[in-house]
Design a protein around this nucleic acid. Structure first.
Lengths: 157, 157
DNA sequence: CTAAATGCAAAATTTTTGCAGTCCC
DNA sequence: GGGACTGCAAAAATTTTGCATTTAG
């Protein structure tokens, strides 16, 4: 959702950050990695590894699917991108590693980000005390998006 | 977490519900389905399809893995069990279809349920308005459980 | 120049499917 | 008894890996 008035500008900033991080940890910034990162940073639809691969192929026709997997895995390990789960079979990815939550349409599997500032400071319930150290709070709202509600009226779920 | 003073008793209640629901929708209650349901209803660790299969094999040595998959899929379609996502590769299942949330240890991948009564009536942020119809609110707290914190001291995440 | 990354092909893993026989209702 | 369900085997789908070659730093 996070309004993006100048996506290209924002992308350039993200790219600078990426370059810096890669230098810090000794990762090489190849064409393939660069394009995969661009695709994810500019995408708003949380594509799967295969979808990312197809999109990147438009710019780098020779990129292989396994490199896409390897790169996503590497990026995820360093926190440059995030894996999002859809209760489906394939993983979906997110170029925005800042804190946000997800709206998931269980019919068309679309995912939309949304912020929830007041929730970010919410107090966790007492039942979670003693469990360990909580690092991230992820809220997923499941439902049916307006598009799908329009299309087919009232089926089951 | 939900304290279970008499799991067998509670299981019998769940079983009656299952029988009723199956009759309603015309599903046959086979040995295989019964044992898969029992395993999940009594489990607290959100096993994978393969783990469920192995456990059920102790009682039904001839049950096949594909039947396990088919049954879990059927049960999920009817809402008798739930699929839980671990950002890992394999799906994990939950025999408790009532409203609750999850604590996920990113190190050992253990999942613990917890209730959050005050949260259940929380007001969603304005950014979600107009998206569509929200059916479920799922909160996942990611972190490191005490067991893992004890074992290996302070590694990266 | 050198270690790391890529592409290819092949494998591993997880999940699904067709079909003949079996079992619940 | 009849249609739904199971087991078997085989396939499909997703993700990972070994190795020779290429490339970034």
């Amino acid at each position: 959702m996070a309004l993006n008035l100048d996506p290209e500008r924002e992308f350039r900033d993200k790219l600078e950050t990426l370059k810096g991080r890669c230098r810090e940890v000794g990762l090489k910034l190849t064409h393939q990695r660069l394009e995969i990162f661009r695709e994810l940073a500019l995408a708003t639809d949380h594509p799967s590894a295969e979808a990312i691969h197809k999109r990147v192929q438009a710019r780098l026709p020779t990129i292989s699917l396994d490199t896409t997997y390897r790169t996503l895995s590497t990026f995820e390990r360093y926190g440059f991108v995030a894996k999002v789960c859809v209760l489906d079979d394939r993983a979906r990815f997110c170029g925005d590693s800042s804190l946000h939550h997800h709206l998931l349409c269980t019919r068309c599997k679309s995912i939309v980000d949304f912020p929830w500032d007041t929730f970010d400071e919410v107090q966790l319930p007492p039942e979670t005390e003693g469990w360990g150290r909580v690092n991230t709070v992820r809220v997923t709202l499941e439902g049916i998006c307006t598009e799908c509600l329009k299309q087919r009226d009232h089926e089951i779920v």
